[in-house]
C-alpha cells in the first residue's frame, strides 16, 4: 500500500493549485538526474552553489570551472557557463578567466585529489596571488571517480584500495589540512570548513558560499570554502553510516568553522 501512495504523490496530474509552494529547485540547476551515487554530498553542494547564484541573480556573470574527478560533469548540472579543466589545473584556468574578465564571478569546484594532490601547486600559487575567485573544495578523503584510492586527505589508518591495511602515516605522512595550510597565505581572505550531513550544516555551508560570492566583489583575494563530503560507494558505508563517520572521525581531523575571515 505504501508503494502505491508514493506513486500517487509523484503523479504528474497532481493539482498543484491546492498546495502552497514551499520549495523549488533553483532554475540555475539543470533539471536532469545527476550521476552521483545515492547519498553523495556533491549533488547537494552543487544545488547550494546554484541557489546562491540564483538568489544573487548573477547567472549571467558567473563562470564555473569543473575539475577531473566525480564532479567532472558539474557543467551538465549547473546552468551557467563553465569550463572543464585538466586534472588539478582548475585554479590556473580560473586565474585566466578572472584576470580577463575582472567583473565576473568565478569559482572552481574541486575534489581532494584534484586540488590537494596533483593541483596543490596551482592552488597555492593562485591563492598566494590573491586571485579574486572562490574555490569550493570537496573533501571526502578518497578518490571517488577512480574507485576509492588514497587521497592526500585520507585519515590515518583509514582503509582505501591503495592502503588496504589503512593509511600508514609513517609511510604516507599525515593528511593535509588544506584550509589551515592555505590560510597562512596573505592572498586568502576567507577560509572556512563546513559540512553538509545535517540541516544546520547545510544552512551554514550555504551561508559560507553566500559570503564567498559576496567577498569576490571586494577584489581583496581568494575565498576558500572546504566542505567535508562523503563517499558511500568507496567508504563502503550507507549514507547514514557515512554521516556518523563524518561526525565521529572526519570532523575530529578537520575541525569545522571559519579558519580565516576578512578583516
Amino acid at each position: 500500500m505504501e508503494t502505491n501512495q508514493a506513486t500517487d504523490i509523484l503523479a504528474t496530474n497532481l493539482n498543484t493549485d491546492e498546495y502552497e509552494m514551499v520549495y523549488e529547485k533553483p532554475k540555475t540547476l539543470v533539471d536532469v538526474a545527476m550521476h552521483y551515487c545515492p547519498g553523495c554530498a556533491h549533488s547537494l553542494v552543487h544545488k547550494l552553489i546554484m541557489e546562491v547564484v540564483e538568489e544573487m541573480d548573477i547567472q549571467e556573470q558567473t563562470i564555473g570551472v569543473a575539475p577531473v574527478g566525480c564532479s567532472v560533469f558539474a557543467y551538465d548540472y549547473m546552468n551557467i557557463d563553465m569550463q572543464e579543466a585538466a586534472h588539478g589545473r582548475a585554479c590556473a584556468v580560473a586565474t585566466a578567466i578572472r584576470r580577463l574578465m575582472p567583473d565576473k564571478y568565478v569559482f572552481t569546484y574541486q575534489g581532494d585529489g584534484d586540488l590537494a594532490a596533483i593541483g596543490i601547486g596551482e592552488t597555492i600559487h593562485a591563492i598566494n596571488r590573491g586571485e579574486n575567485f572562490l574555490i569550493v573544495f570537496m573533501n571526502n578523503a578518497v578518490y571517488g571517480m577512480t574507485s576509492g584510492q588514497m587521497a592526500p586527505t585520507t585519515l590515518p589508518n583509514m582503509w582505501s584500495t591503495t592502503t588496504p591495511c589503512g593509511r600508514d602515516t609513517s609511510f604516507y605522512g599525515e593528511p593535509i589540512k588544506v584550509s589551515e595550510l592555505i590560510s597562512q597565505l596573505p592572498g586568502a581572505i576567507y577560509v572556512t570548513r563546513q559540512v553538509v550531513n545535517s540541516a544546520n550544516g547545510v544552512r551554514r555551508t550555504k551561508k559560507a558560499l553566500q559570503n564567498a560570492f559576496k567577498y569576490q566583489k571586494t577584489h581583496k583575494g581568494t575565498c576558500f570554502v572546504e566542505v567535508i563530503g562523503n563517499c558511500p560507494s568507496n567508504w563502503k558505508m550507507t549514507p547514514v553510516e557515512c554521516s556518523d563517520f563524518i561526525d565521529d572521525e572526519m570532523i575530529k581531523a578537520y575541525p569545522l568553522g571559519d579558519v580565516k575571515v576578512p578583516k
Binding site: A94, A96, E122
Partner: peptide, 9 residues
Amino acid sequence: NMVYGAAGS
C-alpha cells in the same frame, strides 16, 4: 592551462 581558460572565454 591559463591559456586554456583565456581561450575558452
